[in-house]
């Protein structure tokens, strides 16, 4: 039963207040003109961040995961306007071609990619997991990836890649 009064379709006339919002994405400010009812997923893809994938659009598949202030969220379940003033990082923004992030490199080296559609979301979810749990158990990884679906390979190589990256990141932390 709907909690808000259901209005006849034509009557939902909330004036679309298009507005320019400044999103901080991968360390740079991006101006996006968007109405209040656009999601962060839509706004990011409009702005060219197409590594953020559109999947189920209901929070099951995790293909659209991005970091907001360091925490992985589904961009399809985040309104663009509410992301203003927050630090957004996509899978591509974690590293660069020249200086890949350990997770990006491990996914490539372990072949933890088939069609690649779920990969950006898996990398973002893994980064969010490793930030809290630098030395994850098998169960921790399972729990961290519980909101990501891969329909190609299964998850064995993904787990290997995350373990590799975690160990590299722990090493880097120790050297610092």
């Amino acid at each position: 039963m709907p909690k808000t009064k259901v209005l006849a379709k034509g009557k939902a006339t909330a004036a679309a207040r298009d507005r320019s919002i400044a999103l901080r994405v991968n360390g740079r400010i991006v101006e996006v003109r968007t109405p209040p009812h656009r999601t962060l997923l839509e706004a990011l893809r409009d702005a060219g961040f197409v590594e953020v994938k559109r999947g189920c659009e209901k929070g099951d598949c995790g293909a659209c995961a991005v970091l907001v202030d360091g925490i992985a969220v589904d961009a399809c379940l985040t309104m663009a306007w509410t992301a203003e003033g927050r630090e957004i990082v996509t899978a591509a923004g974690l590293g660069s071609r020249e200086a890949m992030h350990p997770l990006q490199r491990a996914f490539v080296e372990r072949g933890a990619i088939q069609c690649g559609y779920c990969t950006p979301g898996l990398i973002v979810a893994a980064q969010s997991l490793l930030a809290k749990t630098p030395d994850p158990s098998e169960d921790d990884i399972r729990h961290g990836l519980s909101g990501n679906l891969c329909r190609c390979t299964g998850y064995a190589k993904v787990f290997e890649a995350i373990r590799d990256a975690a160990s590299e990141m722990r090493g880097a932390r120790r050297r610092r």
Binding site: G59, G62, I71, D74, L77, A125, H143, G144, S146, G147
Partner: peptide
């Protein structure tokens, strides 16, 4: 649910 949903 899954991690991203738990986070929000």
């Amino acid at each position: 649910a899954g991690q991203m949903v738990r986070n929000t």
